[in-house]
Design a protein around this nucleic acid. Structure first.
Lengths: 233, 233
DNA sequence: ACCTGAACACCGTTCAAGT
DNA sequence: ACCTGAACACCGTTCAAGT
């Protein structure tokens, strides 16, 4: 036990007392907050724990962010900044491939941050990276022959379904968990139809693909019908 | 100032000391909790505020519920108990009408409890009313010619999209709001495509109908194709 | 301009004590 | 069996004071 207890030397200072962490900036605060949420869930993020992790005083944050809500907005923005829509690769693709690529890019990013999902699902977050994503996705789909209104509806539907599906698949429950998965299985035996339907197991990725393709089928049919009647284009 | 200050006479007792509120039961606690969430949002619900509202000690709840997570589960259950699937009216309907009726029943109920949405979206809540809804919905769809697996996928998709859509439409942001709607409009001017597409206004009910019908189109097509090849039925 | 410590008004929950 | 009060270990944020 030659190692000193952690609280004897703050995280941000090395053995000779020199600061060892980046300057306290909005960006650094938010990146650390996202790391904490990814690791410990949403209840693991408090101004005080964040300060302990960084090695500073909780009050120092209020010179870079107005309040905790702004911290949440920053975390949402950091996640959306990771969504990778390759604009160059879109050149040869039709609307359907474009929407599919956007849907998958979004889902893969959100899937990497399951604990952030709740925040994303409920916070409008009109911040740079989020609007950037919306604007670029919209431009990409419009270029393939959709009008603004139809493109917005299709993209909103895809985003809403993707978030709803991921929430059901991987979200951490607000207010903490109750039943374990095993207990849930026991309860299921009282519901014959439900038990029978879920007996075959659960393949969320396959389900997502099937539903996404069905939605695209449906939109395509509607689009063709509208074009035949000259209402859209 | 003849009126006594409120704290001198507990809420649950009248002037002559007779109890004036229902007995403290799990059911009464949960109904009151739902009313508070509907009125004040999720942050308005604390064990202490709930106790003040009912006129009892916060600790009294722990004889009826293990913890706050169980209170949340109860609230979710209370909302699902309101979903009205009229089994008798289903007799004459095909699968498409049945799924549509279930979707609308679910959406109308959830829409009445916008602040509960986040909890519903993230808590599995394997409790009576929730599983009852799932089991009945599944039975209703299976009766119209779907196999278990397909019915489950279609209903899960409808539930997930419905929740995702409502979250975007009416949810209260986790962590508190930041921008007002007006500030958001100002920000939008920096994003030309997005600004153009959203200029026509936002009609969530119409969008929902359009997307739901498109999904049903897509599922129907897939179902017919599968039947033609004899894989489903 | 940036950081700090003390303080305020909250939380959920445990525990020992009451009836 | 059911309820209570005090206490513990937390919260976000304000405010006056420091550099």
């Amino acid at each position: 036990m030659t190692r000193r207890p952690a609280h004897r030397r703050p995280v941000g200072v090395d053995q000779s007392g020199r600061p060892v962490r980046p300057a306290l900036t909005r960006d650094y605060i938010i990146r650390t907050a996202l790391a904490i949420v990814d690791r410990d869930g949403i209840t693991g993020l408090s101004m005080r724990k964040l300060a302990a992790e960084i090695g500073t005083n909780p009050m120092a944050f209020y010179h870079h962010l107005p309040n905790k809500a702004a911290l949440f907005d920053g975390v949402v923005e950091a996640v959306f900044a990771e969504v990778d829509i390759d604009l160059d690769a879109m050149g040869q693709l039709g609307w359907r491939e474009r929407v599919r690529a956007i849907a998958h890019a979004l889902r893969e990013t959100l899937r990497r941050h399951p604990h952030v999902l709740v925040i994303i699902a409920t916070r409008p977050a009109y911040t740079g990276a989020v609007l950037d994503f919306g604007d670029r996705a919209l431009a990409v789909v419009c270029e393939s022959g959709f009008n603004d209104r139809d493109a917005l509806i299709v993209l909103a539907a895809v985003r809403e379904y993707t978030i709803g599906q991921l929430l059901a698949e991987v979200a951490s429950p607000i207010g903490g968990p109750t039943l374990t998965a095993n207990q849930a299985m026991d309860v299921l035996t009282a519901y014959p139809t439900l038990a029978r339907a879920t007996a075959g197991g659960y393949a969320p990725d396959d389900h997502y693909e099937l539903v996404l393709e069905s939605m695209l089928d449906g939109f395509g049919r509607r689009l063709r019908r509208a074009r035949r009647h000259g209402a859209s284009g």
